[in-house]
Structures are given as structure tokens and as C-alpha cells.
Write a protein that binds this DNA or RNA. Structure first.
Lengths: 240, 240
DNA sequence: CGACGAAGTTGAGCTGGCGCAACCTGGGCC
DNA sequence: GGCCCAGGTTGCGCCAGCTCAACTTCGTCG
């Protein structure tokens, strides 16, 4: 296993505030692991024996209820810390993480977590910020789900995805990994049928461009309006 | 301002793992503040200049969207750390905290946060666990909202409240602070009308006992079944 | 003690979006 | 090149729960 070069990670939040020597020490304790598309990094309910830093790729984090209902919790992008269950005092992973594209992650044993944060207090801060921003996102989602219509929620979800993993392309902004209608449905608490109808309608109006496991946002401004509750030009209302 | 005695707080999670001397040091930096029922501890959007530990009482944490939609994020009980916005790198409070009953909290200046976690690493761990468990709760709520019917969600919400702030009373378990139908509606993403109908139906069946700003759970077992999706004996179905 | 307002109840009608079902399409694999 | 099937689309009917609205109950304050 080749050592990971410090220069690849030095400017990630997790390594900020550490000296190069410390960075090297931290890296020396980690293993770098490849996950081909579709592979699980860890499974919901499994013992949380490692925590990770995603170096390359995208992961889909999903959670299944005891009743079998599945839903997409979030997507992880390169540079993010994840699987820090241990830090929150959980002994088992609360969700499953699957590689949405071929991905590479650094893994540390959970058992070293405590020792590491004592040695590098900035690590605790980073983790706190990571978890805190997830909490913010999740709370935003709760608010959306309690007060918004499905269409607004889908608009919000797409905009969030674009911001987090958008790739500029000549037609607009493309979500940088394969994502199905079903995935979007599971992010917004609706059905793939409804998502499909909404995307079709939007495609008619030139707001997005669809495709198999592919979504391109063509008019983010307009989508933002929809997300904020602008009723205007919809399926049944021909505004021309 | 009288100093808070160490014995009052020594066995709270926040103070676990600290020596008595350290506990005293930490306490010496805090102010103790009384909040009469209805008073705001902090307001959404205000500068996050302090973080708190609730010593006594209950707080309702609520959040309002830009569109004016309000919703109840959670209730804080005695012993919990809250208002740790600064620790998550937020400069402003993301929600409003209001005393649901007369309450007392310890307050530290946010500016000392960084110094404190370097000095007492266990503080960072505690905060991480606090935030982590909130994240778990919030994610559970998202899952509920995407897959459950309103009735199940209300059942879940009441059970959670009872677990967190239930007071044993001869008729069953009473939620230990005034809570309106509107509050429950805002916790579950529905309307007070629907909550009222559901509670009325449950009262018929002897599952709960209502009242002005008051809810007593009489049959938690049955409620648990309902929460898990047991269809059985409902409003229209007389199962006797 | 009367009366005003906040909290709760209940009825009636309407509709967003879900469930079901049939169908289309394109990409990969033999 | 043809087949297979996962992913996507679309029509239709229905109902949970929202909206609107009228009314009741209770607590409190002058």
C-alpha cells in the first residue's frame, strides 16, 4: 500500500491547522482504499470500526427503516469526512454508504479516534463542523418536508446537488454522478412517478435536461424561484 | 451572582471526565441566568455570542423559514448543552429557543469555546455527542416524514416527548411542560386540526388523555404499535 | 362576575400526489 | 444483431389530510 502524499490532502478542512509533520503522522495511520462503483464502504448496522475521508469520487448514503422503507440521506463528495459514528458515540453505522462512482477513501481505525483528538484538537473541531453542517442540512430538509409542495422540494434537492456536485457543461450544470429518478424521490420523500412527471414538465419548459441516470440544470435561476414557491408557469398553465 | 455549586452539575455528561478542580474552573467562567416561561434565550439570526447548559426547565427550539413557516425543531431538557452554534462554526443562531416553563441555564461566552476545548478535550467529545445525537434524531424525523402517515408521526412524536420529558402520573405518563396541538403539529409537519382530530380519536379509545396544553399517555404500548404502523382499531373501526 | 381571547373541536369539500398499471426506450451482453 | 431488462414515462382513479369555517370551552384579568 503506497503512502498518500501530503500535498494531496494538505488543504482539506481536516488537515487545516496541522503542521506538515502532523499531517504526515496522521496519514501514516490511514489506509487508502478503492471502492468500485456500486461497492459499499460500510453497511447500516455494521460495527463502526473505521472512519473515513473521501479522496475521490462520490458516495450515496442511504438508510432503511425497520419497515423496509429506504431513503437517501445525503451524498458525500471528495474532501469530506464521513463514517464518524464512533465520534458521536455510536457503536454501529446508522446508514449504508455506497460508491456512486469509482471512489477512493482514506480509512482510520475508530479505536484511534480518541487518541487522535487529544493529540490534534483541531480534528475535533473539524468533526464538529462536519456534523454540525449535516445537522443544518437535515433540519433544512425537515422544514422543507413540513411546509413545501413536492415540486419545491425537488427543486431544492436538485439545486443542492448541483451546488455540491455540479459540473459545468455547455448545456448548463450537470450532476456529476449517475442519479436515478428513484434516488431523487428518496431524497425528497416522494415517488419516482411524481419525480418523473415533474422532470418531464420541467424539460418541456427548458428548465432541465434529463436522461438515463442523468440530470442537467439549464436554468438554475428559474429553479430557484420554483424552490422558493414561485407558482408561475406550470404543467397545466401555459404562460405564453 | 451566586456561584453554582459543583455538586449540582458534576454528573452531567458535560462535566464527566473532569476533575473537581476543573469542574470548578469551568463553572467559574459561566453565568447562571433565569428565564421565565415564554422568555427567549436567544433568537434565530442573532449573533451566537454564548453557549448554554440547561440546569432546570424545558426549552422549545423553533425555526422560521424565510416564507414565515414556523416549526418546532426540538425540546431541550435539563442537563443538555445547547446553543453551541459557535462550535459548528456558525456565527448566528439558526433557531430560536424559548422557555416552555420557568428555566435556568448556565451561559458561557462563545469566544471561550476554542480555548476551553483545547484545555478540556472531553468537552469537544461531549459536544460532538450532543450534536451527533441531534443529527440522529433529525434524520429519524426525515425518514418518518418521508414514509409514514400523519397518525404514525404523531404517535412517534408523543412517545419521543414522553421519553425525554415524561413525568409518571397515576393516569399514565404526562408530558412535563405545556404543549399545544399547534406545537405537536409543528413537530410533525401537519396542521393543528389534524392533530386535534387524531388526539380526540385516541382519547375515545383511552390511549391518551388531553386537556389544554396538556397530554397524558395512557397506553404507550398501544401507541408504540400505532407508531410502527399497526393499522388496527381506528376512529371508524370499533374493535370490541 | 362578566367578557374577552387563546386553545381546542368538529364539519364539509377539495385536491395534490400516491398507487396501480401499462407501456416505452436505450444500453449492455451473449 | 437481437434480446433482455433496468430505468423511465404516462394515464387514471382515489383518498389522506389540508383548507375554510363555525362553534365551544376554559382561564384570566379588569
Amino acid at each position: 500500500m503506497a503512502a498518500v502524499d501530503r500535498s494531496l490532502v494538505a488543504n482539506l478542512p481536516m488537515f487545516a491547522g496541522l503542521t506538515p509533520t502532523e499531517q504526515d503522522e496522521l496519514l501514516r495511520e490511514a489506509r487508502s482504499i478503492r471502492y468500485p462503483k456500486g461497492a459499499a464502504v460500510f453497511d447500516q448496522g455494521a460495527e463502526a470500526d473505521r472512519f473515513f475521508l473521501l479522496l475521490h469520487g462520490h458516495l450515496r448514503v442511504e438508510k432503511t427503516t425497520s419497515q423496509g422503507q429506504q431513503s437517501v440521506v445525503r451524498y458525500v463528495s471528495a474532501g469530506e469526512l464521513f463514517g464518524v459514528a464512533q465520534a458521536m458515540n455510536l457503536t454501529h453505522y446508522p446508514a449504508t454508504a455506497v460508491a456512486a462512482v469509482d471512489s477512493i477513501a482514506l480509512a482510520w481505525p475508530s479505536s484511534s479516534w480518541h487518541r487522535l483528538i487529544v493529540k490534534y484538537p483541531s480534528l475535533a473541531s473539524t468533526a464538529l463542523q462536519t456534523v454540525g453542517s449535516r445537522l443544518q442540512d437535515t433540519q433544512a430538509r425537515v422544514m422543507e418536508m413540513s411546509s413545501e409542495q413536492v415540486e419545491q422540494r425537488v427543486a431544492h434537492a436538485l439545486l443542492r446537488l448541483a451546488k455540491q456536485a455540479g459540473k459545468k457543461v455547455d448545456a448548463g450544470i450537470e450532476i456529476d454522478f449517475p442519479i436515478s429518478r428513484q434516488d431523487v424521490a428518496e431524497m425528497t420523500g416522494t415517488t419516482l412517478h411524481t419525480v418523473s412527471r415533474i422532470l418531464s414538465a420541467w424539460e418541456q419548459q427548458g428548465l432541465v435536461e434529463g436522461g438515463r441516470q442523468r440530470i442537467v440544470l439549464r436554468d438554475t435561476h428559474r429553479l430557484h424561484d420554483l424552490a422558493e414557491g414561485e407558482e408561475a408557469a406550470q404543467t397545466h398553465k401555459r404562460t405564453l
